[in-house]
Design a protein around this nucleic acid. Structure first.
Ligand SMILES: [Mn+2]
Ligand SMILES: [Mn+2]
Ligand SMILES: [Zn+2]
Ligand SMILES: [Zn+2]
Lengths: 142, 142
DNA sequence: AGCTACATTATAATTATTCTAAACTATTGA
DNA sequence: TCAATAGTTTAGAATAATTATAATGTAGCT
């Protein structure tokens, strides 16, 4: 979803009615320079900071899942406690900071193309994703 | 944890008292040819099938986490709903079958060593894991 | 045998997410 | 313009996985 796009039109195009809740969520998610990662809780907080009127939690869940289904969000499972969503819906790899629980995107030049030699009959590959877990390096504390 | 090992000794060695619950869980998890993946629910089912006396759910959770802490189990987050554990505690990659929700191990020859060119200052890499999502290939149904 | 720290257990609490069903609203077409 | 309709929002209940509590039990030591 491009920045400063006509969200009303965009939503209609994909068959979602442009309600004020959805438009607000679009603004919060997509009117920014860079893509980012968030939890539903993060999103609820961002919305409540920018709005007088609240959006109910059920609607936030509904909307996030509706956007996911339409391909405007990607769900990422890293941490068994939290479900992350990503406004970067392209295929890409991640660093996960185990100290801060922050996700960081890798771009194409960071990791070579992964070549899978194993095949499983009757099955096709949907995605190949690398997760690099990082944490603070305490070797420096001699 | 090797097959047919003396679990009582092994548990004592790492500072865990060899209770009958823990010994039973060791047998269920480690007395088999191959490593495998399971959820806590799976494990509870396996135990109840093989035992007259039940082990409480809290104990199963406690034990699984104790074993994880001691390095005899690995936790895997793939699916936001379920937490998987792996009796294969070495670094390895996975296929995840999105139809059956089954995890399949990759061995070293299946995927080349991953080279990470990106570095983040003050952070060290703890692990690099690839997840290959697969699903049934319906191209064949012409 | 008796002490003590560790473990087990039933049960309650917590948390994230989904469901329900009633109220609301965007869209359409008469 | 306006009512019909299907889609949407919402508060609150329900569900499910996991963790906390606190009482009871037990392994290991003397
Ligand atoms: Mn989902
Ligand atoms: Mn855990
Ligand atoms: Zn990302
Ligand atoms: Zn595995």
């Amino acid at each position: 979803m491009p920045k400063n796009c006509n969200f009303i039109e965009k939503l209609r195009e994909v068959g979602l009615r442009p309600t004020k809740q959805r438009i607000k969520i679009c603004e919060v998610l997509y009117n920014r320079e860079k893509t980012f990662h968030f939890t539903v809780n993060d999103l609820v907080k961002m919305i409540s900071e920018q709005m007088s009127q609240k959006i109910s939690l059920a609607t936030v869940y509904n909307t996030v899942h509706a956007f996911e289904k339409k391909g405007y969000l990607k769900e990422i499972s890293i941490d068994s406690q939290k479900t992350y969503f990503d406004t970067n819906t392209s295929a890409h790899h991640h660093f996960f900071d185990e100290d801060t629980h922050e996700l960081i995107d890798c771009d194409g030049s960071d990791i070579d193309k992964i070549n899978i030699r194993k095949t499983i009959t009757g099955k096709k590959i949907n995605s190949i994703e690398v997760l690099v877990r990082i944490a603070s390096d305490n070797q420096n504390q001699k």
